[in-house]
């Protein structure tokens, strides 16, 4: 290759854009919630592309310096620095992945064991004798549980309860916990100087919207919305800062607007594809070829 090699620069700029401004913009575009599946695909593609671009930028900078005709001392220092930064990024991700994975598995196992000891059984439902309404699922490969409190069974009408249970089972069937885990890993690895917080919050909301949509296959939107209100109502005293509560309002807004948006869905999936494939084809491929 002749002239200055732009590969590290392009990949670096891409990594910065995909880690900061792009997720920040996406988090503000609430219309993405109306095509939750496509939006989820895009979030995952952007996160993956950001990590790959960051690693690629460091590696290509290092190889670019060492493979020169006459590698000077400055080039050597740059190469070592670039390689170090790459390794730090990779190590932080791996460490964070290990920590989050281990702590989640421990928390879930302990919680499951306690639920199994104290909860009553209604078919495959675990019921806790308690007067605060809750409904949640404990994800796991072979040991998943859907747990509700007695208050939930009392407060909800049968159709509402069916909708809530369908919602929780959709989380388990689609393994939404894996997506949440991946974005938690990303957020714990790079809590600052990366919009991983916005990404995590959006993905949490999208997961709920996806489960809501799945619940609509067995129940009416109004039953699900009424269940949301009833459950939230029983829980108000517990939290003083209801920042996450606006998610509830957004979920009902999305429930009300279910017109199919094929164009937006297709556009988002194409964008997901582009963000992963184009940098590989246009930047990484020539770089790898130049190494050979």
């Amino acid at each position: 290759m002749t002239g200055v090699d732009l590969t590290p620069l392009v990949l670096g700029a891409l990594a910065v854009a995909l880690a900061g401004p792009v997720p920040a913009l996406m988090a503000r575009a609430s219309r993405l919630h109306l095509t939750p599946f496509a939006a989820m695909t895009l979030w995952q593609a952007v996160a993956l592309a950001a990590v790959l671009a960051a690693l690629g930028a460091g590696l290509s900078l290092a190889t670019g310096q060492t493979l020169r005709e006459e590698p000077g001392p400055v080039g050597g220092v740059v190469a070592v620095l670039a390689l170090t930064v790459t390794l730090v990024v990779a190590a932080r991700l791996l460490l964070s992945g290990h920590r989050v994975g281990t702590s989640l598995r421990t928390l879930r196992r302990e919680h499951r064991e306690q639920v199994d000891l104290v909860a009553g059984r209604h078919d495959d439902l675990h019921v806790l004798e308690h007067d605060v309404p809750v409904a949640y699922c404990l994800p796991g490969v072979a040991h998943s549980r859907v747990v509700v409190s007695a208050a939930t069974l009392e407060h909800l009408e049968p159709a509402q309860l069916d909708a809530v249970l369908a919602h929780e089972r959709a989380h388990l069937a689609a393994r939404h916990d894996l997506v949440l885990e991946a974005f938690t890993v990303l957020h714990r690895a790079f809590p600052r100087w990366v919009s991983s917080d916005a990404a995590l919050r959006e993905v949490q909301l999208l997961v709920e919207i996806l489960a809501d949509r799945a619940a609509l296959k067995v129940g009416r939107a109004h039953d699900l919305g009424a269940a949301l209100l009833a459950m939230a109502h029983g829980r108000v005293p517990a939290g003083s800062m209801g920042a996450s509560g606006s998610d509830l309002v957004e979920r009902v807004r999305v429930l009300a607007d279910r017109r199919p948006r094929r164009a937006q869905g297709v556009a988002l999936v194409l964008a997901s594809w582009a963000v992963l494939v184009l940098p590989t084809a246009l930047v990484v491929q020539p770089w790898l070829a130049s190494l050979g």
Partner: peptide, 29 residues
Amino acid sequence: SERAPALVAFVEDASAEDLAALRKALAAL
């Protein structure tokens, strides 16, 4: 707010203002 997603819950905590907004949104539904 900084929780590990060990459990996936149907609703998280809401404030009184959230509830009012929720009622309005539900009426629109």
